Simulated scan of single mutants.
Amino acid sequence: MNALPKPRRARFFPTFLAACLGTLSTGLALSAGDASAQGADAAAFVPRPAVRSAFAERSMILDATRAGTRLIAVGERGVVLLSDDEGAHWRQAGKVPVDATLTAVSFTDARQGWAVGHLGVILHSTDGGETWSVQRIDPVEDRPLFAVAFTDARNGVAVGLWSLMLRTRDGGHTWEEAELPPPPGDTRADANLMSAFGDTQGHLYIAGERGLVLRSLDGGESWSYHPTGYRGTFWSGTALADGTLIVGGLRGSVYRSTDGGEHWQRVDTGSQSSVTDLVAFDGRVHAVGLDGVSLDSRDGGASFAVARRADRLSLTAAVVTAGGVLHFSRAGLVR
């Protein structure tokens, strides 16, 4: 999801994540004196649409979600996959205006949804993912967005590289950059923000580097930090219906909070494989990760059972279906 990451952080990203980060545009290397040239480059930039391919199901998928009865998955080169039969069959979306890697997707109902990714792109769909339009793109700076979450069809946030946070109050017609306060003990906010999710109360949460978890009680207007005691990177998070919060990331690390993020407890997963995605349903928590690992909890995330694929295929995303949990990977859909 990026390139030219700060050298002190590059070691934290595994192979699959490095592959999806790509390289930042040369605009990052331009000096302040080249501002006019940057503006001209941005004005002249015309994104290429995603290519339709018979092999789209084999593309690396980085996130998946539900839009009513439809399943939607996004990934490299602007691939958007749709399924209307709980994942039995998939087809490529009809119109995706960019071929940039898409890292995350979120729908508020069966029709309204957003996808984010490289080039700082934010795409919007009003027809359940069939077609998409560009709401935002920044080809000059190219700070990738890693996650997007909406509390309703008008209010949402998108987060990404070096504490980039964008906020909308009008369904994405306009996006404004929000400046986060520095975390405790730091002079500025510059950590990569990897995951954004909400709970049933309309509260928003962000998980990221250095074990950071942030919480907003006002739809993303203001944020507070909630220490977890962990110093590694969280890549994913989810909230259960009862308000329990689960975040996971490097080296099989999973942390759990039952009081809205005020206090956190580390959960022994029995795995050292990094967690790449978490989903919650019916009181269960399911996680997927590198090395073909999946974790399943039937007690609200207090404990997990571990399974590993024989081929050790790194898993990148999961989505809940009527028949269970469907997995995605670096090699696309996992049958």
Rank of each mutant, 00 (worst) to 15 (best):
Q135L: 11
R136L: 15
I137V: 15
D138S: 14
D138R: 09
D138V: 07
P139A: 03
P144Q: 04
L145S: 08
F146E: 10
A147N: 06
V148D: 06
A149M: 04
F150W: 00
T151F: 00
T151G: 07
T151W: 00
D152W: 01
A153E: 10
R154W: 08
R154D: 13
V157G: 03
V157A: 06
A158M: 08
V159C: 06
V159G: 06
V159W: 07
G160L: 02
S163T: 03
L166N: 03
R167P: 05
T168C: 04
D170A: 02
D170H: 11
G171Y: 08
G172P: 11
T174C: 04
E177Y: 02
E177R: 14
E177G: 06
E179V: 15
P182Y: 09
P182H: 05
P182N: 09
P183Q: 05
P183D: 06
P184L: 05
G185S: 09
D186I: 05
D186R: 15
A189F: 14
A189M: 14
A189Y: 15
D190H: 14
L193R: 04
L193E: 09
M194H: 13
M194K: 06
S195W: 04
A196G: 07
F197K: 06
G198K: 14
G198V: 06
G198A: 14
T200G: 08
Y205I: 02
I206E: 08
G208S: 02
E209W: 08
G211N: 05
G211Q: 07
L212N: 08
L214D: 00
L214W: 12
D218S: 03
D218I: 01
D218R: 05
G219V: 00
G220H: 01
E221Q: 13
S222E: 05
S222R: 09
S222C: 01
W223G: 00
H226P: 00
P227R: 00
T228L: 00
R231C: 00
G232F: 02
G232M: 02
W235F: 15
W235C: 11
T238F: 02
A239S: 12
L240N: 01
D242G: 08
D242V: 12
G243M: 09
T244N: 09
T244M: 05
I246M: 06
V247H: 12
V247M: 11
G248N: 12
G248H: 10
L250V: 12
L250N: 07
R251M: 11
R251F: 10
G252Y: 14
